[in-house]
Design a protein around this nucleic acid. Structure first.
Lengths: 188, 188
DNA sequence: CGTGGGATCTTGTCAGTGGAAAGATTGGAT
DNA sequence: ATCCAATCTTTCCACTGACAAGATCCCACG
């Protein structure tokens, strides 16, 4: 093996995401990740500084992926319901990222890359709700609907990931509960 | 100080809840908890076996508290909306418990006390939704509504706790978004 | 060409942690 | 009074995160 791993940063992030998805963030050790990647225990430090740095990078990557996923659903014209389905799909496909994203205690909240990625994701989510509530922007109805929609899909994803709910068809059930909140919400 | 602490188990659980609420589950160490309680580092082992055992006991305590809180709201006649408000109130008042409850990787899922407490909490939640959906029990509408309601309040609580949403009045906002999902849901 | 410098990785070290083994102390039951 | 079970302490080991110092490699610039 070459002295330079060549793609260590990416490898470590992927291994961390897998390990967190399996065993939780607490069970992940930098040394174990380094071992799997075939490098010494101090190699990750160079790329991420410390453990919080690695998890921060993972969270930032997650927000980027989430923004892409949700924006993709919006551009496909599915309306707010399909954006919600996309949100849940992201969470279930990237449980390791999702786990870290919403636990500020695990990462450096002042990280610039993280802030940027989160802002981009927030914009992607807001775009969907904004399209539906052009009229009642002033009375706070749009913001309230946004919080409700976000809570619904975020909570559903969390409950499924935690094992509290075991759906046969997560995407179908997401669609069903989203329609309870937005009965007319198939298109905008 | 007496050789027997006298209330070590309770003391450790309370200290753990505080520490987790502040810094997350990963940052809590059994030794630090033992130090705060004024006992040696192996004392907690006797009560909980290991770290997972302590977190399991904390989760079980949390499910008990949640069942009490939600049942209290239901018996007060507030309807499903106020039960949701009670759910969020529990989460914000006991963030340490809440954190552990929905992370199976942190505890022993086969613990009998935990299973019992969780079952009781599930019953308390189901009772509220059940009262509203006496009619359409056969078509799965009740179960779907239950999942939607749970997702909504659970997601809202999670988002507030993670800092993703910063409401001035969490209870009021909970009530508002719950009414979006259950417009007629003040009483049953 | 070759050489210096920055990026990448290794080795070695230290304090802190979880967990287990073995023993000491205490309160209570008989 | 004595024994026993519960509770707590002491001691030890493997593992981890973090840091310091040094080795190796690649590339730009002369």
């Amino acid at each position: 093996m070459a002295y330079h791993h060549g793609d260590l940063r990416r490898t470590l992030l992927a291994a961390a995401a897998d390990a967190i998805a399996e065993s939780g963030a607490a069970a992940v050790s930098l040394r174990e990740l380094a071992r799997r990647a075939g490098v010494s225990n101090a190699a990750p430090t160079h790329h991420f500084g410390d453990k919080a740095g690695l998890l921060t990078a993972l969270a930032a990557e997650g927000y980027g992926l989430l923004a892409d996923t949700v924006t993709g659903a919006r551009l496909s014209g599915g309306g707010i319901v399909e954006m919600g389905v996309a949100y849940v799909r992201f969470a279930l496909e990237h449980p390791g990222h999702f786990e870290v994203m919403f636990h500020p205690a695990l990462h450096r909240t002042d990280d610039e890359e993280l802030r940027a990625a989160r802002t981009r994701a927030a914009g992607a989510l807001a775009a969907g709700v904004g399209e539906r509530h052009r009229g009642d922007a002033e009375d706070g109805g749009a913001e309230l609907a946004a919080v409700a929609a976000w809570s619904l899909v975020h909570g559903y994803a969390t409950l499924v990931l935690s094992g509290a709910v075991h759906p046969d068809d997560p995407q179908g059930q997401t669609r069903a509960i989203a329609r309870l909140l937005f009965p007319e919400g198939t298109a905008r």
